[in-house]
Design a protein around this nucleic acid. Structure first.
Lengths: 130, 130
DNA sequence: CTCCGTGCAAAGCGTTTGCACGGCG
DNA sequence: CGCCGTGCAAACGCTTTGCACGGAG
């Protein structure tokens, strides 16, 4: 949590709770998911605060951010493991499982003239609980 | 184009032009891209018509649909090659290059209890023209 | 001549922003 | 006590929908 202070962000109750919740849940959540959880604890909790904080956390690389295929909303998940990895993602509950294989390791530059800036590899499906 | 008729869609001038444009461009385009092109040909061309047709084409699997990472809008590209494949995608112009390697071939089910429903593998970067 | 396709307008959804108050440090 | 964080409200961008007219079959 020290990272927050280092970047000039104050350690408010709401921030702590949002982060704790994401760490505890350990899966991809929408802003609405977080908002609903927070609303149970703070009456009058506002959507904007959730968004702003998720955005701030994400900018500090505390979170992983993705969009499920065909969905237009952002999904956030707390990034404890800083190593490069990919995910199996449950499209029902957002649960993730780390996949250590990276297709880029197998993929030897067959793109003459192109500058590779990033990649994305995600497996979607239903986890054992859904 | 016969597919349209088979599914009860009429062959209108706008439809033909939208499809031709997508085939000719051979890259991921936003609805706005298509709208702007169409507007040059038909004054009074409406956004809704573009959307409706892109949606219809996509539902008939005539198009590939994706969202660039961090973008909230849909991108469409005409799917001539029906074989399973992945893409290098230029984040500037939307140009694509087919990648024949599929990471799922290397990936032997290490996800006990999970039902795999789909996957996504995309490489992002700049193409030789951008 | 009958429907489907279209343009127009408005609504919808998720997200972002401006402003003034309130609480952390 | 200064400034960042927050709630409220409104705006935003992209997409979708309802309705009545117009064109394809």
């Amino acid at each position: 949590m020290a990272i927050l202070k280092e970047n000039g962000l104050k350690l408010t109750k709401r921030r702590k709770e949002i982060l704790s919740f994401l760490i505890e849940e350990n899966r991809y959540l929408s802003a609405l998911d977080v908002f609903e959880f927070m609303s149970e604890r703070y009456q009058g909790m506002s959507y904007d605060t959730v968004y702003r904080n998720l955005r701030d956390f994400s900018d500090l690389n505390l979170l992983e951010e993705t969009e499920f295929h065909g969905e237009k909303k952002y999904r956030f998940s707390c990034n404890v493991n800083q190593d490069h990895h990919h995910h199996f993602i449950c499209t029902v509950c957002g649960a993730t499982k780390e996949i250590n294989m990276c297709p880029m390791d197998m993929f030897k530059e067959q793109l003459p003239g192109c500058v590779i800036e990033g990649h994305r590899f995600e497996i979607f499906g239903k986890c054992e609980n859904c």
